Computed example of a mutant assay.
Amino acid sequence: MIQIQVWADFECPYSYFQTIVLEKMQENYQDRVEIVWRAFELSPVEGNISPSQSYLSNFEGAKLEPIVADEKLKLLRPKFLTYTWLAQESVYFANSQGLSLKLARALFDAFFLNGLDISNEEVVMQIASQSGMNGQLLRQALDNGELTKHVMADEQEFKIYGFQGLPAMLIGEKDFSPKSFMPINGFKTFDELSAIIRSLNV
């Protein structure tokens, strides 16, 4: 089985696109590919801040990607950037229930299509529940602090691998040494990612 570990941020449009592609990979390869969510927050902030000009320029460039038209995504220009740590911890926890991509997609939709505040606990918990998560188990996991340790470790590993931006992926055979995994930086289309998977003889 091939494992794809993906680092992504909920305010990064290219991370959103990569999540959509990974959903399609999961549909097409099913039990031959496992997707594992890894966390990285591009712009950790307290409260809400206005997007920088560089962020907005990046967002406008992302809107030109073919996947936007193909998926009929009606992207809203973000009015604010916020603290996404709660969302990251929740999706990390969803790995254990096989729901990480479903929850990640729902959180991306909430931010980019509906303009919701995904730093708000009530919003995140509602989205998690709608995605099939057990809200009580998620709240317990969030409260005991273990998820925070895992997310911090993910961010440290991102730096160790020397990734320069998001999304970023490690692709290789599950249960093999991480050193054998192929590092991939930047958004990859379904065709590009499929070619990489085929090169690994899946």
Results as ranks from 00 to 15, higher is better:
residue 73 L to K: 11
residue 93 F to C: 01
residue 31 D to E: 14
residue 57 S to D: 10
residue 10 F to R: 09
residue 28 N to H: 08
residue 79 K to S: 07
residue 71 E to K: 15
residue 59 F to K: 06
residue 82 T to E: 06
residue 93 F to H: 10
residue 57 S to E: 10
residue 87 A to M: 03
residue 51 P to Q: 08
residue 10 F to P: 08
residue 28 N to M: 06
residue 43 S to A: 12
residue 81 L to A: 08
residue 63 K to A: 08
residue 86 L to E: 05
residue 84 T to M: 05
residue 87 A to H: 05
residue 42 L to E: 13
residue 23 E to N: 15
residue 70 D to Q: 15
residue 51 P to K: 11
residue 63 K to N: 06
residue 32 R to Y: 01
residue 78 P to C: 11
residue 52 S to H: 10
residue 80 F to A: 13
residue 71 E to F: 14
residue 96 S to E: 05
residue 55 Y to F: 15
residue 76 L to W: 09
residue 48 N to M: 12
residue 49 I to E: 09
residue 87 A to K: 05
residue 91 V to D: 02
residue 71 E to A: 15
residue 92 Y to F: 11
residue 42 L to P: 06
residue 44 P to E: 06
residue 40 F to C: 03
residue 44 P to Y: 07
residue 41 E to A: 13
residue 64 L to P: 00
residue 63 K to G: 04
residue 69 A to I: 01
residue 72 K to H: 12
residue 74 K to H: 13
residue 83 Y to R: 14
residue 73 L to W: 10
residue 22 L to R: 07
residue 97 Q to L: 01
residue 61 G to F: 00
residue 22 L to I: 01
residue 38 R to M: 10
residue 7 W to F: 04
residue 12 C to E: 09
residue 76 L to D: 05
residue 41 E to Q: 14
residue 81 L to C: 10
residue 72 K to W: 00
residue 60 E to L: 07
residue 49 I to K: 15
residue 20 I to Y: 11
residue 26 Q to N: 14
residue 21 V to R: 10
residue 56 L to H: 08
residue 92 Y to E: 01
residue 7 W to V: 01
residue 50 S to D: 07
residue 43 S to W: 05
residue 49 I to Q: 13
residue 43 S to Q: 10
residue 79 K to L: 07
residue 25 M to A: 05
residue 22 L to V: 03
residue 86 L to M: 10
residue 64 L to G: 00
residue 8 A to N: 09
residue 59 F to S: 08
residue 60 E to T: 06
residue 63 K to L: 03
residue 45 V to D: 05
residue 88 Q to D: 00
residue 44 P to C: 11
residue 44 P to W: 05
residue 81 L to I: 12
residue 79 K to G: 15
residue 6 V to N: 14
residue 97 Q to F: 02
residue 63 K to C: 10
residue 26 Q to W: 01
residue 22 L to M: 10
residue 86 L to K: 13
residue 46 E to H: 13
residue 46 E to V: 09
residue 47 G to T: 08
residue 51 P to V: 03
residue 96 S to T: 02
